[in-house]
Write a protein that binds this DNA or RNA. Structure first.
Lengths: 185, 185
DNA sequence: AAAAACTGACGGAATATTCCGTCAGTTTTT
DNA sequence: AAAAACTGACGGAATATTCCGTCAGTTTTT
């Protein structure tokens, strides 16, 4: 419980103030917890960041894959999953910003990334199936997934930045754009 | 001269170690400059980051728009400019990572972003022309530009990460994907 | 030779981290 | 079943450590 409080507090502060200007004492205060307690659960500020990342990716994937069954056409599955990703981030702007800001941070090792990403590998199965049916441009499943993700990722960034209203029509168009970019003409 | 040395040193250290773990003394050492000298040119670490950003975007845009003349088809202009963007980043991985890592940082204010982005507005003219000819999906020029940029941005991230070999064929395909995502079917 | 630029040792403020007493809850003893 | 002993999470004061930013002395430029 306290551990989660600390993670949430850290996430909020890191996103709004930037890693370097957040002190452990601030995190403790925001989490309504003693400073010592922070050290009971974490070794350092970097450790907190790493654990937020893992926790975060885990929450994301639960949301995305909840009730997911790979039925229907590839396109339907594609839309189902990516729409979930989009909605998750739009509903959790703080978490999104954290995700964006730290994705390329040197604090997160390759090991942490792999650990955190393992739940997202289901995406690759989808792309594999699409490739077999010659729906996609000739890249590996992994690369197609990364491509779609980075597209969506950047798009959400400015959608939040410009406080765009994201109704169903907009999201549908966006999924169409993502699809068009990887599918064969 | 020393100012530029400091900016380059800061960029390198921030990217490889992360903002919070880089000290002014480290930057001074890397730049082969006294600590006091850093304070002669900059007020703080945050100030250094902001000035790196501005400097960086300025170098990028010089590279991208060098010898650019809006001739030929929209598609040709599109390819010309975005290929330049891609090549710039591929040739400057450190600069790319800096750009990626700090794009969403709370250190960079809206003012800094606007200042740094003003040289890239030429892109919007291109998109405006394309919109007039009904080549693109019905979004604003600004949004189409941001969309393409985020696509390319994310793509370069994993290209560098996976140490992909980026020959002309790959770049051509990639430009095709970016084009496909915004053009009308 | 005067002014400007530079250097890096140093003091002290800021911050991280440790350490220990407290106390609510649990287990053992009587 | 009451009392005593035990446990370990917790908080925050104390301490260790880092890091900033200044400034006296030095070098370079004009």
């Amino acid at each position: 419980m306290k551990r989660i409080q600390i993670l949430k507090a850290g996430l909020k502060l890191f996103v709004t103030q930037g890693l370097h200007s957040v002190t452990i004492a601030q995190i403790a205060a925001e989490a309504k917890v003693g400073i010592g307690t922070v050290y009971r659960y974490f070794n350092s500020k970097e450790d907190i960041v790493q654990q937020i990342w893992v926790q975060q990716k885990s929450e994301e994937s639960s949301y995305v894959f909840q009730d997911y069954a790979p039925l229907g056409t590839i396109r339907e599955q594609f839309d189902f999953l990516w729409e979930r990703v989009i909605r998750y981030f739009l509903e959790h702007p703080l978490e999104y910003q954290f995700s964006y800001q730290f994705a390329a941070s040197p604090i997160l090792t390759k090991e942490i990334h792999e650990l955190a990403m393992k739940d997202f590998l289901q995406f690759d199965e989808l792309y594999e199936k699409g490739l077999k049916k010659n729906l996609f441009k000739p890249l590996t499943a992994r690369r197609l997934r990364l491509f779609t993700f980075s597209t969506i990722n950047g798009w959400i960034l400015w959608a939040l930045d410009e406080k765009m209203v994201l109704d169903d029509t907009t999201i549908t168009m966006f999924l169409q754009m993502s699809w068009d970019s990887i599918s064969v003409a």
